[in-house]
Design a protein around this nucleic acid. Structure first.
Length: 733
DNA sequence: CGACGGGACGC
DNA sequence: CGACGGGACGC
């Protein structure tokens, strides 16, 4: 559902040359499907190298609709690979259009393997639609982004509809994370909804439910391609964000499985595409064999959890509640399939202790892929197994519900920081320098503790968000007022401040991190944390841009001058107010947000243009810098001010957090230490570091990492957090 | 070659 | 407080 497609060098790919390496858009997108995770992966990634678009798809590939899973029974990848292509269905094609009219348009976005006009079998009449085959899903995605609803063919009545052909997504192993969204303003448009949700990741689709009169029913569905995006949206919006004109905050949760229309059953057991089959809704009656469905659909998800054998999946999930977040009422719907989430995997895993490690990273980047299971596993296992070596990780989750409790909390739990903290790093570090482990723990610790709480409030990755975004990003008034504190001369304070800034820079830039933190905190402090979160949520609610200035938001409101629409720069009328604000605050609005690729690398996504890049956009950098300057102390002060905000409970919270932070501090350390090694690793591969890596084609990068062996594995987990640390770390620290 | 029958939770 | 659109399988 991207209306804005970043059309990049159209024509750039048109020749038969393998269109791969569009360094940019691919990574962010789902990993091209099939089989993704299980092939040995000698060097061919699921998509990049794997798809040989050039070679015409074998006959097998030609299967018609409907049997998405037929070829992958049990998830066994068919070597023949009948599906090295991505088929799009194109609707609203004028009946007068010929292939020559259509093909060029699609060639602009990839190498078109085939254009098939759909004609009536008997009459030969053009049906007004066609199929376009691309070699890769990246190309197909690109075409969708660029053309869907955005281009009208000559003679056409309306813009063409470009989407994957029925069953294609499933066939490609794509997984969707569909959210049900309630309490929408009935006047809201698809675009508006998309804008709200695009902060958490590229929105693949928005569907507003309407009545017979086309009137919105105030609810709808939003799809993402990655679980983390969906989770981030849930965490950030559910029960928190109130649309203008609405009395209640949005309800955001994983959608129930779609009720199949009659006669549509075949093939896909349930919900083909957005399946979020809650497998276990009470009462579900699966023919037993369906259990397998998971198996079938799991493939994609499995891919994401390379380390775990596909056993645990669903079952573990079944019981748990969604994110465990108090905010989420019935999370049962979490896309289990997808979910795959790292978390669960760990459950029941043969390898316990370690799974934490593994699961953690995974959860962070719940994306598909990560093929190199074999090679990498060994390294990990060793280290992990020795629990002694993992102290950090364990410590991180001291209170964490232990692995088994499949309680709701557990689920979310995993994510976050710990990832980076993973045991792996430690291992590496060992050799490097054990001494460091103890250095500066305190400082970091405190910084972290400060940072964490803050995170709740300030997630904004987008600069302008500061002003207008949904509450979460707004800083409590008290905090702002206290900003001066930052300036405090005391060396310690400065130090803290500095660190805080660093942390902030890294954290605030990542919503994912935010959500993960939330989750982590919850996990760590089930009860108190939950309360805290709720409180924050409450506070946030009050601050909701639409809700009007609540007591809490007053300061902010005054400062920001209620710029509700700020978020949505493109379409907001209220923009008039922004200029002034921007000037004063020197804020630049930035539509770029940072995300973690399946492999654990950061990439940047522009919610407005839909563009994605490996390298950090200057705008974002600038933005972050500005933010830092402006609110460096926010976090710090916030910590202090929190009490005022959250009177009683605040204190306990902090205390609890600290111990953990402490651990985290250590972890961070380790990461830092480790860093060198990783860097060298990259260097060995011709890149100097993460940043440079970004320049490299995604797949290439992937390949490098993979071949690297454990280090690679590391990088996957580490990246998210670690990278944050080192990348943004000022020289001082 | 053969292409979807049959039933249709319960709050 | 709302639960799933709309055109669909040629060679």
């Amino acid at each position: 559902m991207s209306y804005h497609s970043a059309r990049r060098s159209p024509g750039g790919f048109r020749s038969g040359a393998a269109p791969h390496h569009r360094a940019f858009d691919s990574p962010p997108r789902r990993s091209p499907g099939r089989g993704g995770g299980f092939r040995p992966m000698g060097g061919e990634g699921p998509g990049e190298f794997g798809f040989n678009g050039h070679q015409a798809p074998p006959p097998l590939a030609g299967q018609k609709r409907g049997f998405p899973f037929s070829g992958r029974g049990g998830g066994s990848p068919d070597h023949l690979d009948g599906g090295n292509f991505a088929k799009l269905f194109v609707g609203s094609v004028p009946r007068t259009a010929t292939e020559e009219d259509i093909r060029p348009l699609f060639e602009e976005h990839g190498n078109v393997i085939e254009v098939a006009l759909i004609k009536d079998k008997k009459t030969g009449q053009h049906q007004g639609c066609c199929f376009i085959k691309y070699a890769t899903s990246e190309e197909a995605d690109q075409a969708i982004r660029a053309l869907h609803n955005q281009h009208t063919l000559p003679g056409g009545v309306g813009p063409i509809q470009v989407r994957y052909a029925d069953g294609e997504r499933e066939r490609l192993g794509a997984v969707e994370y569909k959210l049900f969204v309630g309490s929408l303003n009935k006047q809201a448009t698809v675009k508006e909804v998309e804008e709200i949700f695009s902060k958490y990741g590229r929105v693949e689709d928005v569907y507003l439910m309407r009545d017979e009169k086309k009137q919105s029913r105030g609810c709808g569905f939003v799809k993402y391609s990655h679980r983390d995006m969906a989770l981030a949206a849930i965490n950030a919006l559910n029960g928190i964000y109130t649309m203008r004109g609405c009395e209640q905050p949005l309800i955001v949760r994983f959608a129930d499985p779609k009720r199949p229309r009659q006669g549509d059953s075949r093939g896909l057991a349930f919900g083909g595409p957005g399946f979020g089959p809650r497998f276990d809704a009470p009462g579900t009656r699966h023919p037993s064999n369906i259990t397998d469905p998971m198996g079938d659909r799991m493939p994609p998800s499995n891919a994401w959890h390379p380390l775990h054998p596909p056993n645990m999946g669903p079952s573990s999930n079944a019981g748990f509640h969604g994110m465990g977040s108090p905010l989420l009422p019935r999370s049962g719907d979490m896309a289990l399939p997808t979910d795959a989430g790292g978390p669960m995997t760990s459950l029941g895993g043969p390898i316990d202790g370690r799974f934490q490690v593994q699961s953690i990273p995974m959860s962070q980047q719940p994306m598909p892929q990560i093929p190199p299971v074999n090679q990498q596993i060994s390294p990990l296992q060793k280290p992990v197994q020795s629990s002694q070596e993992l102290p950090p990780s364990h410590q991180l989750y001291p209170q964490a519900p232990v692995p088994y409790p499949q309680t709701s909390l557990r689920q979310h739990g995993q994510p976050q920081l710990s990832l980076s903290a993973g045991p792996l790093p430690s291992q590496k570090i060992h050799g490097v320098s054990g001494q460091f482990l103890t250095s500066q723990p305190q400082t970091q610790q405190s910084a972290l503790s400060a940072a964490i709480p803050q995170t709740h409030l300030d997630t904004g990755m987008q600069s302008h968000t500061t002003l207008t975004t949904p509450n979460q990003q707004q800083v409590p008034p008290s905090v702002q007022q206290q900003q001066p504190l930052q300036q405090s001369p005391s060396p310690l304070a400065q130090m803290l401040s500095q660190q805080t800034q660093t942390l902030q820079a890294s954290f605030h830039s990542s919503q994912q991190a935010f959500s993960q933190l939330q989750q982590q905190l919850q996990m760590m402090q089930p009860s108190s944390q939950a309360l805290t979160l709720q409180q924050n949520a409450e506070a946030n609610k009050k601050q909701s841009q639409w809700a009007g200035p609540g007591p809490v938001a007053q300061t902010v409101a005054s400062t920001l001058a209620a710029a509700p629409a700020a978020d949505v720069p493109s379409s907001t009328p209220a923009n008039s107010a922004l200029p002034a604000i921007n000037q004063n605050m020197a804020l630049v609005k930035c539509n770029w947000t940072e995300h973690i690729s399946p492999e654990g690398f950061k990439y940047y996504y522009n919610s407005v243009t839909g563009e994605s890049r490996w390298e950090k956009p200057e705008e974002l950098t600038l933005h972050e810098q500005q933010k830092q300057q402006q609110r460096p102390s926010v976090q710090q002060s916030q910590t202090q001010s929190q009490p005022s905000i959250l009177p009683a409970q605040q204190v306990p919270q902090i205390q609890q957090v600290q111990p953990q932070s402490h651990l985290q501090g250590q972890v961070l350390h380790q990461q830092q230490i480790q860093q060198p090694s990783l860097s060298s690793l990259f260097q060995a591969y011709g890149v100097t570091g993460p940043q440079n890596v970004q320049e490299v084609g995604y797949k290439q990068l992937q390949a490098s990492v993979i071949s690297a062996g454990d280090p690679g594995r590391y990088s996957q987990g580490i990246h998210s957090t670690q990278e944050l640390m080192w990348k943004n770390k000022p020289a001082g620290v």
